[in-house]
Write a protein that binds this DNA or RNA. Structure first.
Length: 402
DNA sequence: TCTGGGGTCCTAGGACCC
DNA sequence: TCTGGGGTCCTAGGACCC
């Protein structure tokens, strides 16, 4: 039986690299893509020039400005990145019939049994890197391994512009070469608990039995760690059929107390979220409202219905009730969000039962169609004039000219 | 330094039914 | 009159990832 071979391919500093390709004068400079400097957001991606100054993804934008005042700060242009991502993925398809996207900038390629076509794995990966660069100007890093989990860790280890192969039999040695802090799937909280237990390396964790790990860290985390530190794929990256949830949320430039303003924003969020459902052809039976208070604590409230949510008005009615019920009176909010789930809920598949619901849904669909034709985004009268962010639009696209 | 927005999956408790 | 155990569904929150 021949060994499995997986590639994990990851585009280096994706958003920032696209900006540098589109504007050659940015090449070699610290490009920082993300929130508006001075605003309440974070860094989305930054170039390696910015990273060398200590800037990294998810860092508050203020901190990035402090570390790198000479940085070139740019808004997220998601549509442009999607185009670029499509171009990269079509290169992937010339190497593997069904590359599996993990996100906009990374994918798994099952290269098992392609030796006759592309030669040795490392040679095939080098050819893939060249092909991506020739077609798009982007650099990618490739991890090669007998399973997806190891391939993912290997590509991360090889960045930037890297190539690293973990061969069968090298699993444990490779895991031991990684600091425990770099273990994908074990974030801040788990790292903290591991330190508290004086577990400092993969080898330390390997000394513990599966059920012992389960008892001290919880069944799920314990089983994950037991497999991961041996280089066994813990079973992430399952094939899924369609999205499990769709949501839209917004952090305000300043905390908001006023009820009318909040409800106007809620209406706008409902419109966006319902349009996202329509675009994907989904019917949802569950609606979730998310709140974040000024002190950064978050709460959510949800309702499951027997029938699918049929329209923006329908969603807004339910969302308003949840917001009023959940929100502490007069507490300033920093964020509001609306989400949907329950797409496979039994009766959702029956579609809309009532004529009235269907009429409103048709109207919503028509408005969405118009928006797409004109390239504008219609806003319900009530939501007009509230919280328009001049830096980026709601989907991260450039904002309207102001 | 003051913390985005889009997701996924897991856990725990309560309601309800058999 | 008191008390099982299991299964399922729902809700809320949390960890984690890009």
């Amino acid at each position: 039986m021949r060994a499995n071979v997986f590639f994990h391919v990851d585009i280096d500093a994706f958003f920032a690299s696209v900006e540098q390709i589109d504007k050659p004068e940015y090449a070699g400079k610290p490009v920082i893509v993300g929130a508006r400097p001075g605003g309440r957001g974070v860094v989305s991606t930054c170039s390696y020039e910015a990273r060398s100054r200590g800037v990294h993804s998810a860092m508050p934008i203020q901190e990035a400005v402090r570390l790198c005042p000479e940085g070139i700060f740019l808004p997220v242009r998601m549509e442009r990145y999607r185009e670029s991502s499509d171009a990269v993925f079509s290169v992937f398809e010339s190497f593997c019939p069904e590359p599996r996207a993990l996100s906009i900038d990374e994918a798994f390629l099952d290269m098992t049994g392609t030796g006759r076509l592309f030669g040795e794995s490392a040679a095939a990966a080098a050819a893939l890197k060249d092909a991506v660069f020739a077609s798009t100007g982007l650099r990618v890093s490739v991890g090669i391994a007998p399973n997806r989990f190891l391939a993912k860790l290997a590509s991360a280890r090889s960045k930037p512009d890297g190539l690293l192969e973990v061969k069968p039999g090298e699993e444990i040695a490779f895991m031991d070469s990684l600091p425990l802090g770099r273990l994908w799937g074990a974030g801040d909280k788990t790292q903290e608990r591991l330190r508290a237990l004086n577990l400092r390396s993969m080898a330390d964790i390997r000394k513990l039995e599966r059920d012992v790990l389960g008892r001290i860290l919880g069944k799920g985390t314990g089983a994950f760690l037991y497999d991961a530190c041996r280089g066994i794929d813990p079973g992430f990256f399952q094939e899924r059929d369609g999205p499990r949830s769709v949501s839209t949320e917004r952090t305000f430039e300043r905390d908001i107390v006023d009820d009318d303003t909040l409800e106007a924003i809620l209406l706008d969020l409902c419109q966006e979220a319902v349009h996202a459902l329509i675009k994907r052809g989904l019917l949802a039976t569950c609606l979730i409202v998310k709140l974040r208070y000024g002190d950064f604590t978050s709460v959510s409230a949800r309702t499951s219905l027997k029938r699918p949510i049929s329209s923006i008005d329908d969603a807004f009615r339910i969302a308003t009730a949840l917001l009023r019920e959940k929100r502490r009176a007069a507490a300033p909010l920093r964020l509001l969000g609306v989400g949907f789930s329950g797409f496979d809920g039994g009766e959702a598949s029956q579609g809309l039962l009532f004529d009235d619901d269907r009429r409103r849904a048709d109207l919503d669909r028509a408005v969405l169609g118009m928006d797409e034709k004109t390239g504008l985004r219609s806003t319900r009268a009530r939501a007009l004039g509230k919280e328009v962010n001049p830096w980026t639009g709601p989907d991260g696209s450039p904002g309207r000219p102001s």
